[in-house]
Simulated assay, not measured.
Amino acid sequence: MKLALFDCDGTLVDSQNVIFEAMTRAFARGDLPLPPREAVLGIVGLSLVEAMRQLGGDDPAFPADEMAERYRNAFRELRAEPGFAEPMFPGVRTVIDRLAAREDVLLGIATGKSQRGVAAVLSHHGLEGRFVTIQTADDAPSKPHPGMVLQAMQATGARPADTILVGDTSFDMVMARAAGARAVGVTWGYHARDRLHQSGAERLIDDAGDLLAAMDELWGGALERA
Score class of each variant (00 low, 15 high):
H125A: 12
D139M: 12
H125N: 11
Q154C: 00
R130S: 12
P141W: 11
A137E: 06
P160A: 10
G167L: 01
H145V: 07
Q154A: 14
G147Q: 14
D138Y: 10
A140P: 02
D168L: 07
M153Y: 09
R130M: 13
Q151A: 13
T163N: 03
L127P: 14
D139N: 11
D168A: 02
D138K: 07
P146C: 09
V166N: 04
P141H: 08
A140W: 14
G129P: 09
M153R: 11
I134L: 14
D168N: 03
P146V: 12
E128M: 04
S142V: 11
L165H: 08
G167Y: 02
M153V: 11
G129N: 07
D162A: 11
H145G: 01
Q135C: 06
A140S: 10
D162G: 03
G129W: 00
G147F: 10
D138F: 02
I164F: 05
R130I: 00
Q154E: 15
G167S: 01
E128D: 15
G126F: 13
L127G: 14
A155P: 04
G157E: 06
T169F: 10
Q154R: 15
A158N: 08
V132P: 03
I164S: 00
R130D: 07
V149D: 05
P141K: 14
T156H: 07
R130A: 13
Q151H: 14
T136E: 08
P160Q: 05
A137C: 05
L127D: 14
S142A: 10
D168T: 06
T133L: 12
D168Q: 01
Q154G: 11
L127Y: 14
A158P: 03
I164R: 01
G147L: 08
P144Q: 04
M148C: 01
G167M: 01
P146N: 04
Q154P: 02
D162N: 04
T163V: 10
L165E: 10
R159H: 09
G157L: 09
G157F: 08
G147P: 01
A155T: 12
Q151M: 08
L150C: 03
D168E: 01
G157I: 12
P144F: 03
H145A: 13
F131D: 05
Q135N: 05
P160L: 09
D162L: 06
P160W: 08
T133G: 13
T169G: 08
D139R: 15
D162F: 00
K143N: 03
P160I: 13
P160T: 12
V149Q: 02
D138S: 07
E128P: 09
T133F: 11
K143A: 03
A140F: 13
P160C: 10
Q151G: 00
T133H: 10
P146M: 06
T163F: 05
T169S: 15
A140I: 02
P144D: 02
A161R: 08
I134S: 08
A161T: 11
H145T: 05
D138E: 03
P146Y: 07
G126Y: 14
A161V: 15
G126Q: 12
P160Y: 05
Q154I: 02
T169D: 01
K143Y: 09
Q151C: 00
G167I: 02
D139Y: 12
G126L: 13
P144N: 04
D138V: 00
V132N: 08
P160V: 12
G126C: 14
T169C: 06
E128W: 00
